[in-house]
Write a protein that binds this DNA or RNA. Sequence first.
DNA 1: GCATTAACCACAG
DNA 2: CTGTGGTTAATGC
Length: 230
Amino acid sequence: MDQYLTKTNCINCKRSSTCFTQRIDYCKDFFFLEKAHINFKKGETIIKEGTFVSSIYFVLEGLVKVYLEGPNKNVIIKIIKSNDFLGLTSLFGDNTYYFSATALSDTTICSIDLDVIKRLLSENCKFTQEIVKWYCGNYNLMFTKCFNLGQKQLNGKLASILLYLNEDKFKSENIYSHLTRKDLAELSGMAPESVARILSKFNDDKIIKLKGKKVEILNMELLKSIDKNG
DNA sequence: GCATTAACCACAG
DNA sequence: CTGTGGTTAATGC
């Protein structure tokens, strides 16, 4: 029976087997420190742009969309799933979040005090490496994003997002069942109508197969070339 | 100018 | 919320 909020340290945590703590050197101070596990229902806001940062989150379970809020529509930066950090980009800087995050499915996060993370960074090389790796991955993802939003035409924009959602890490997540067409639009930086139109065009051209909300890729080569060439 | 592209709008399911 | 069709504005040839 899951409580809404539990506190545990990394020694007693039932989820530690998949956690980043498995990949770093043991550090007594950190591992024994109590952390809060917090549950969010589907649709709940986890982080709101502009609020002060007091802790870093590690997603234990669920799917989360990370996005920037605009007056009429948002820009979804990325979708994250279990075993990923949330809020690391606010580790340094002006101590506010530059993005919002909401749960796409029921989500459990581990909340770790910001200063504790900073201390661990200076003390634990493996952890520092882990974090730098995270930044590199995200930085490169953002390059792709910039190119997508700034340079590509609709076909290419959508193709890029379909490829992103087809990545191995999302394979087990039934990702499309948690995403609306509007989400796809905000992910790819296009109007929802355009998403619908081009999805059905891809479907007609046998590049993908639409099964309700799900999208199955039939012609990977062609999709990749559309992604590349627009 | 004409063609293409893509957002906006309205409406139906 | 989706999907479709028409309209419109911007851009390119």
